[in-house]
Design a binder for these strands. Structure first.
Length: 711
DNA sequence: GAGCACTGC
C-alpha cells in the first residue's frame, strides 16, 4: 500500500513511510462531539444582479411550506420578550447561532409591532449577495413586492422607495449615508448584523450609531433604537462598549458535528491534509462530500494536482476536485454547486471564502488545516504583508460548522487540542491592521473627530497619525490637529474610492486626461484583472504581451480596459485573453459611477490621446508617496543589494515584481511610481510605471522637497 | 524571476 503514495509530488518532505502514521493519528482522536447549527437562508454564491438571477433566487428561497418553516424558528419563541426589550431599551445585543432566523425575522417582528413608528428599519450586512438574497426572502415572506415595504440598497443598485420600512443594505452603504446625515434621521431602528465579523465598516458604524443616539437625545429628536446581532462574539467587550445593554441569546437549530483533532503536531499541513483526505476517502460512502480549508490559489492548485495523482491508484470511489477561491473566474466557481455524477465524491478545496461568504451544500466532512492567509500593514513604510498564520478559535468553529449545514457531519482538524486552546479566541479586528486614510477621511466628512471617535478596538496612534499626515499631504484636510476638510477634501470624500485615487481624478482636468484617469482608477479600484492558472502560465503570459506598454503596468492596464470596452463578445474575449470578465465588468461599473460624480462636480472630461506621460504625471498627484528610486550600482545586470534594487521614500528596499511590465526592461528606469508595496516572499513593487524624477516636483512640491532633503 | 486571503463604497 505504501508504494502508491510515492506518487505525491510537489509536496515538500512527502515521505512515504510516515504517510500512514500521520493518517492514523489524525483519525484516532475523537475528542468531543459538539452540536452545531442548521442552515439559515443565506444562499450560495450567485454572482451578478440581472433579472434571471433574481427569479432563480426567489424560486430557491421560497419553499411552498415557507410559513410552516417560519413558525419553527427559535427567534419566534422569544418574540414577546424581544418586543419588550426593544421597547424598554435604546440598545440591545442579540446573539443567535445560524438557523435561529434572526436576520430575516427580527425586522419583521419589529415592523409587525410597529416599533419603528414613523421612521424605517435599516439592517446592515457585510456582503452584497447576502444583502440582496435576504431582502428578497423577507419580501416574499411578507408577501410584498421587493422595493415596496421591503427593499435593499447596495452599490450600483438601490431597490427602495419612499414606502420602504425594512431596508437591507451593506454596511458600506449605510456609512455613505452617514456622511450626508450623521444622525441617520430617516431610521428609527438600526440593526447591525454579523457584528462578530468586525469589518472596518461595522466597527465604524458602532461608533456612528452610538453618537447618533446621544446627539438625537440632545437635539430632542426621535430616539434611535440599535440592535447588534451576531453569531458568537466577545459579548463582554460589546456589552461594555454599549453601556451594559441587555443581551438576548437565541438557540440555533442544529445538526451535530463530530470533531476530530490531530494527536500530534503536523509539520506540513498540506501533506497532512492529503493523508486525511485519502484515509477518509477509503472508508466513507461517495455521497459524503469533503471541504478542505487551504490558504490560497497556489496551494489549492498544488493539492489538487496531488489528489489527482494519488487518486489514480488509491482505493475508494471516483473523485471530483473543485477549487474555490475568490480569484477563480465565476464560471469555474460554479462547479462547486454542481452535483457530481452518481458514485463520485466531490472534494472542494477552498480558501476562507467558504468560511462565511458562501455555503456549499452536502458537505459532510470538513478538513481544517487551521491556517489562513492574512494581510497586515506596516505604518512606517506603507508596506503590506501577506502571510500564513494560524486562524483564531472562532474561525476554527466556523469552519467545523460548515459540515453540519444539511445533516450531521464531521470535522477533522489537522492541529492538536492544545494548539486550539493556545489560539486567540477572536481574530484581530481589521481596523487595527489596515491603512486608515480612507476611513479617517470618511469620519471627518461625517463631522466626527477621528482622534476621539469611540471605537471598540482603537488602531495605534501611529497609524492614525500616519493617515492624517497623508490626508494633509493630499490636500484633503487643513491640519493634522483638529482637522477640517478643505474644499478639495470635500470633493474627494464624494468618491467611493481611496483618497489617493480621488485626488488623481480631481487633478486630471489639469493634465487633460480625465478620460484615461477614470478608466485607470476604475481598474485599480477593482480586483486583479489577470487570471494566471498554474498549468497554463506560459500561454497566459504570451497572451498578455499584446497589452504590455513599455511605459509600465498602468498603461498596460489601460490598454486591457480599452480593448475590453471595444470587444463585442466580452465573455469570450476575456476567456481567450486570460482576463477576469467579472472584475473588468465591475471596473466598468465603477467607471460609470465615478464619471457621474465627476460630472456633478463639473470636471472637464477630456482625453490626452497618445500623450500618455500626461496620465503618468497625473497619477503622481495622488500617488506621490509611492515613488521608488533605483539604488546606485544596482542597475542593469548587477547583483541585487539588500532586499531589492529599488528604495522607497520611506527607505524600504523592494524589487520590481517579476510579473510586471518593467521587470525585463533594460536599463531599469531610475525612478518609478508603484501602486502597492507588498511583502510576500520578498518585498515587491506592484503595478509600476517609469517616471521622470523631476515630475514629482510639480505634482507635490512640498513633499518632493522634504523627500529630497531626507534622501 | 514569482505567484494575491476576504469584503465594501
Amino acid at each position: 500500500m505504501d508504494s502508491k503514495y510515492s506518487a505525491v509530488a510537489g509536496v515538500k518532505d512527502a515521505k512515504t513511510n510516515n504517510f500512514k502514521r500521520k493518517f492514523v493519528n489524525i483519525i484516532e482522536n475523537n475528542v468531543k462531539k459538539v452540536k452545531l447549527s442548521q442552515p439559515d437562508y443565506k444562499l450560495n454564491n450567485v454572482h451578478g444582479t440581472n433579472k434571471n438571477y433574481k427569479q432563480t433566487i426567489v424560486k430557491e428561497i421560497c419553499p411552498v411550506n415557507m410559513q410552516e418553516a417560519r413558525k419553527r424558528l427559535p427567534v419566534l419563541m422569544v418574540r414577546s420578550r424581544l418586543i419588550q426589550e426593544i421597547r424598554n431599551n435604546l440598545t440591545m445585543i442579540l446573539i443567535g447561532e445560524t438557523g435561529s432566523g434572526k436576520t430575516t425575522q427580527v425586522p419583521q417582528i419589529i415592523h409587525e409591532a410597529r416599533l419603528e413608528g414613523l421612521g424605517s428599519i435599516a439592517v446592515t450586512q457585510p456582503r452584497r449577495v447576502a444583502t440582496i438574497t435576504i431582502a428578497l426572502r423577507v419580501a416574499a415572506e411578507m408577501n410584498t413586492e421587493i422595493g415596496g415595504y421591503v427593499g435593499y440598497s447596495v452599490r450600483f443598485e438601490d431597490v427602495t422607495s419612499p414606502k420602504t420600512k425594512v431596508k437591507y443594505l451593506t454596511d458600506g452603504m449605510l456609512l455613505r449615508e452617514a456622511i450626508m446625515d450623521p444622525l441617520l434621521k430617516k431610521y428609527s431602528v438600526i440593526i447591525l448584523d454579523e457584528a462578530h465579523e468586525r469589518t472596518v465598516n461595522t466597527d465604524i458604524l458602532f461608533g456612528i450609531v452610538k453618537l447618533a443616539q446621544k446627539e438625537r437625545i440632545v437635539k430632542k429628536l426621535s430616539e434611535l433604537k440599535v440592535i447588534i446581532m451576531s453569531a458568537t462574539m466577545d459579548v463582554d467587550t460589546f456589552r461594555k462598549y454599549f453601556d451594559n445593554c441587555p443581551v438576548i441569546y437565541l438557540e440555533g437549530r442544529s445538526y451535530p458535528v463530530t470533531i476530530y483533532h490531530s494527536k500530534m503536531k503536523q509539520e506540513d499541513y498540506q501533506y497532512a491534509a492529503l493523508c486525511t483526505i485519502f484515509q477518509l476517502h477509503a472508508t466513507l460512502p461517495s455521497e459524503h462530500d469533503f471541504l478542505v480549508f487551504l490558504t490560497g490559489q497556489e496551494e489549492i492548485e498544488s493539492v489538487m494536482y496531488n489528489i489527482k495523482q494519488i487518486a489514480k491508484e488509491a482505493p475508494g470511489p471516483l473523485i471530483k476536485v473543485c477549487p474555490l477561491y475568490a480569484g477563480l473566474p465565476a464560471a469555474k466557481q460554479l462547479q462547486v454547486w454542481k452535483d457530481p455524477p452518481q458514485g463520485t465524491r466531490k472534494v472542494v478545496l477552498a480558501t476562507n471564502i467558504a468560511e462565511a461568504s458562501v455555503t456549499i451544500p452536502r458537505i459532510k466532512c470538513v478538513i481544517d488545516t487551521g491556517v489562513v492567509k492574512e494581510r497586515t500593514w506596516c505604518t512606517r513604510t506603507g508596506a503590506e504583508r501577506l502571510r500564513v498564520t494560524r486562524c483564531a478559535g472562532a474561525a476554527c468553529w466556523q469552519r467545523a460548522g460548515r459540515a453540519g449545514r444539511t445533516a450531521p457531519g464531521a470535522a477533522y482538524r489537522l492541529y492538536t487540542v492544545a494548539d486550539l486552546k493556545a489560539r486567540p479566541p477572536h481574530s484581530t479586528p481589521e481596523i487595527v491592521r489596515c491603512p486608515l486614510a480612507p476611513t479617517i477621511l470618511l469620519l471627518i466628512a461625517a463631522g466626527m473627530d477621528p482622534v476621539t471617535f469611540p471605537l471598540i478596538d482603537a488602531p495605534s496612534s501611529d497609524s492614525i497619525e500616519a493617515s492624517l499626515v497623508l490626508l494633509k499631504e493630499l490636500g484633503a484636510i487643513d491640519s493634522e490637529s483638529n482637522p477640517k476638510l478643505t474644499p478639495i477634501g470635500k470633493k474627494m470624500s464624494a468618491f467611493p474610492i481611496d483618497p489617493k485615487y480621488s485626488k488623481i481624478l480631481l487633478s486630471a482636468p489639469e493634465y487633460g486626461c480625465l478620460e484615461e484617469a477614470l478608466s485607470l482608477v476604475a481598474v485599480l479600484s477593482s480586483e486583479n484583472v489577470f487570471h494566471t492558472p498554474m498549468h497554463k502560465r506560459e500561454e497566459a503570459l504570451k497572451v498578455k504581451q499584446k497589452f504590455i506598454s513599455p511605459l509600465g503596468d498602468h498603461i498596460t492596464l489601460l490598454n486591457v480596459f480599452k480593448d475590453f470596452c471595444k470587444a463585442p463578445l466580452k465573455k469570450q474575449w476575456c476567456k481567450e485573453n486570460y482576463l477576469h470578465h467579472k472584475n473588468l465588468t465591475y471596473a466598468s461599473e465603477i467607471r460609470h459611477q465615478l464619471l457621474s460624480i465627476c460630472q456633478r462636480l463639473n470636471l472637464t472630461v477630456s482625453s490626452c490621446g497618445n500623450a500618455l506621460d500626461q496620465l503618468l504625471k497625473c497619477l503622481l498627484c495622488g500617488l506621490f508617496t509611492n515613488c521608488a528610486w533605483l539604488r546606485s550600482g544596482a542597475g542593469g545586470e548587477g547583483k541585487s543589494i539588500g532586499v531589492g534594487r529599488y528604495v522607497t521614500a520611506s527607505g524600504a528596499g523592494a524589487s520590481l515584481h517579476p510579473a510586471g511590465a518593467l521587470h525585463t526592461a533594460r536599463p531599469l528606469p531610475p525612478a518609478v511610481l508603484y501602486t502597492e508595496l507588498l511583502h510576500t516572499r520578498r518585498p515587491y513593487l506592484l503595478t509600476v510605471s517609469a517616471i521622470q524624477p523631476h515630475w514629482l516636483h510639480r505634482a507635490a512640491p512640498e513633499y518632493a522637497r522634504r523627500c529630497h532633503a531626507s534622501r
